[in-house]
Design a binder for these strands. Structure first.
Lengths: 303, 303
DNA sequence: ATCCTTTTTTTGTCCAGGACAAAGACCATG
DNA sequence: CATGGTCTTTGTCCTGGACAAAAAAAGGAT
C-alpha cells in the first residue's frame, strides 16, 4: 500500500552524459561490448540508468582519466573501483600547497577559504599570490580530485572563491594604454578558467594591458578580435585534460591565420616541452616564465 | 603551383555541434528532412561542413531562439535570414541601459568598459549597481544579441568584465557568520553565471552570508552541500533560455529532497509568474524582490 | 638492456534510417 | 476572447554496423 516516491529516480541517457562526461555513443557501445551499464527501459524503450550505475560510471570515468583502460576496469565492482582509486594514493607529497586551505575546501568552508586567500594575497602581493599560493593549490586540488578525496561541489566551491579573489585584484590593477596589449582566452574545447586568470594576474602585475575573453572562443572570432583590437600578443591556456595533439594542431592553425606581427604565447600541461613542434609560438612553462616572455617582448619591441 | 592553405577548412560534425549549439542528431535529421545543411564528405564518408554552411547554421539558430520554426526558415538564403534578423529589430527601446557601455561592448573596448563599470559601482554602491546598471545592461546585451548586433566574442568580453567588477565587490563585503546562510548555484543545464552573481551581490550587500557554487551543480551534490553546510536557503537562477517546464520539474524534485527547514528561492525568466505551480518555493521576481525575500525570512526566523 | 619501428588490439566517434513523444500550431466549441 | 482537442512539426533516442586514431604488444636494431 506504500506509494514509492521516486527519490532516486533513474536518469535518461542525456542526463548521464551530462553528469559523467561520457557521451551517449560511448554509453551505448560500452553496453554492447562490455555488458555495462545495462540500464532499464521506460515504456517507449528509452534507457533509464539507475543511480547506482551512474555512480559506478563516475568512478570509471575517473580511473580512465588516470590512464586505466575501459576493458580492464569496467567489469569490476564499485567497491573494487573505489579501492583502485585509493591505491593510486600518490606517494609524492601534496606539493607546497597550504594544507589548511585544502582542508577548508574539503570541509566546504567557503567563508574561511575566502578569508585565507585574501590574507595570502595581502601578504604576498598579486604576483606571488598567483605563483606561490594559487598555482600549488591548484595542483593539490587536481591531485585530490584524482584520488577521489574531493568531488564536484568542492571543486566548484574552490574555483568560485579563487575567482572572486583573483578577479577583484586584477580589476584593481586596471592598467590602460600600456604595452604590450595581450589578448587572453582558450580554445573552444578548453573550459578551465583558472589558468587564464593566473596568467592575467601575473601579467597585469607587470604592467601589461591584458584583456580576457574568458574560455571557449571560436577560432575565427579570436582572429578578428586580435586583429581589430590591435593586440600585440594572443595568450592561450591549456589544462592537462586537453589532448596534446589537438593543442598543437590548433595552435599551428592559429599561427597561420594571424599576422606575424602578433605573437602567440601558449601555456599549460598540454604544451609543455613541445617547443620543437611549435615554431613561431612562445611556450610559457610557468607563471614566472610568462614574466620572462613579457620582458623579451619589451626588449624586442620597445626601443 | 600554389599550395592551397586550408584557411577556411571544413568542420567535423562535432565541431559544428560545439560552435552552433545544434546537436549531431538534429544536424543529421535536418539534412534528411529539409535538405540543409548538405555537407561534403571526407575519405571515410564523415560529414565535413564548409564554413559558409556553418555560418548559415548560426543564423538559423538565432532565429529559432527567437521563436521561428525550422521548416519555415531553413530554405531561405543567408541574406534572407540576415534580413529576417534585422526585421526583428525590436521596437521597444533598449531599456534604461547606459548606451555608452553598450557601445564599448560593440567596439571591443574592454578597458573602457571596465573603467565605466567601476565608476558606476563607486557612484551607486553595490546593490544599486547590480539593479540599476548591470541588470538593464544584461537585458540590452541580450536584445542586441537577438538582433545580431553583437556576437560571441563581444558577449564574452562583456561577461568577463562584469564578473571582474562584481566579484571584486562581493569579496570586499565578506560577511561571515550572519544569517541567513544562502547557498547559490544553478541546475546542471544552466550555465549563465551573471544572474547568480547579481543575486549574490544584492544579498551580500544586505548582510546575508552567501556562498556560491557557481553553475551546473548536480542535484545530489546540491542536496548534500545544502544539508552538510547548514544552509538556511538554497537560491537557484534561471536564464530565459531554460525551458520553463524543466525548471518547474527540477525545482519540485529538489523541494522533495530537501528538508522543509531549508527554503528554496528561484529567480529568472524561466520561473517568472509560476508561483501557483511551485508550492513551497519562493519565486524571486527581481533583484529588489530578493531583498524582500531576505526581509521575510529574517522576520520569520530571527526573533 | 633500451630505443625505435611495425603490427595488432582497443576504443571512441560517426553513419543510416526508423520510431516516438513532447511542443507547437491550428481549429472548433463554450 | 478563452479553452480544450486534434493534427503537424521537431528533437531525441534507438539499433547495429563501420572505421580511424590511440594504445599496447611484438619485433628488431643498436
Amino acid at each position: 500500500m506504500e506509494i514509492q516516491p521516486k527519490l532516486d529516480s533513474a536518469s535518461s541517457i542525456a542526463a548521464v552524459e551530462r553528469d559523467t562526461g561520457i557521451s551517449k555513443d560511448t554509453l551505448r557501445v560500452w553496453e554492447r561490448r562490455y555488458g555495462f551499464p545495462v540500464p532499464e527501459r521506460d515504456a517507449s524503450g528509452d534507457r533509464l540508468y539507475p543511480a547506482d550505475q551512474v555512480e559506478k560510471l563516475r568512478l570509471i570515468r575517473r580511473l580512465i582519466d588516470q590512464g586505466k583502460r575501459p576493458a580492464k576496469i569496467i567489469g569490476a565492482s564499485s567497491e573494487a573501483l573505489l579501492a583502485m582509486i585509493e591505491v593510486a594514493n600518490t606517494p609524492r607529497q601534496a606539493a607546497a600547497a597550504d594544507t589548511s586551505m585544502l582542508q577548508y575546501v574539503r570541509l566546504h568552508r567557503g567563508a574561511e577559504l575566502a578569508a585565507a586567500l585574501r590574507q595570502a594575497l595581502l601578504k604576498q602581493g598579486l604576483q606571488r599570490f598567483a605563483a606561490e599560493t594559487v598555482a600549488p593549490l591548484n595542483e593539490a586540488i587536481g591531485e585530490a580530485w584524482m584520488r577521489g578525496e574531493i568531488d564536484v561541489p568542492e571543486e566548484h566551491l574552490y574555483t568560485e572563491q579563487v575567482q572572486n579573489v583573483l578577479r577583484g585584484a586584477i580589476g584593481a590593477h586596471a592598467g590602460v594604454g600600456t604595452r604590450p596589449r595581450v589578448l587572453l582566452t582558450t580554445f573552444p574545447d578548453e573550459e578551465h578558467v583558472l589558468g587564464l586568470l593566473m596568467v592575467e594576474a601575473t601579467l597585469v602585475a607587470e604592467g601589461a594591458c591584458c584583456l580576457s575573453l574568458g574560455t571557449r572562443t571560436p577560432l575565427p572570432d579570436l582572429r578578428t578580435a586580435a586583429i581589430d583590437g590591435g593586440f600585440d600578443v594572443v595568450g592561450l591556456s591549456f589544462s592537462a585534460a586537453y589532448p596534446s595533439r589537438q593543442a598543437i594542431d590548433d595552435l599551428l592553425q592559429l599561427r597561420m591565420t594571424l599576422p606575424a606581427t602578433i605573437a602567440i604565447w601558449a601555456g599549460g600541461e598540454a604544451v609543455k616541452g613541445k617547443e620543437k613542434r611549435l615554431p613561431g609560438i612562445r611556450i610559457v612553462s610557468s607563471l614566472a616564465d610568462s614574466v620572462n616572455a613579457l620582458t623579451e617582448w619589451r626588449a624586442a619591441h620597445l626601443a
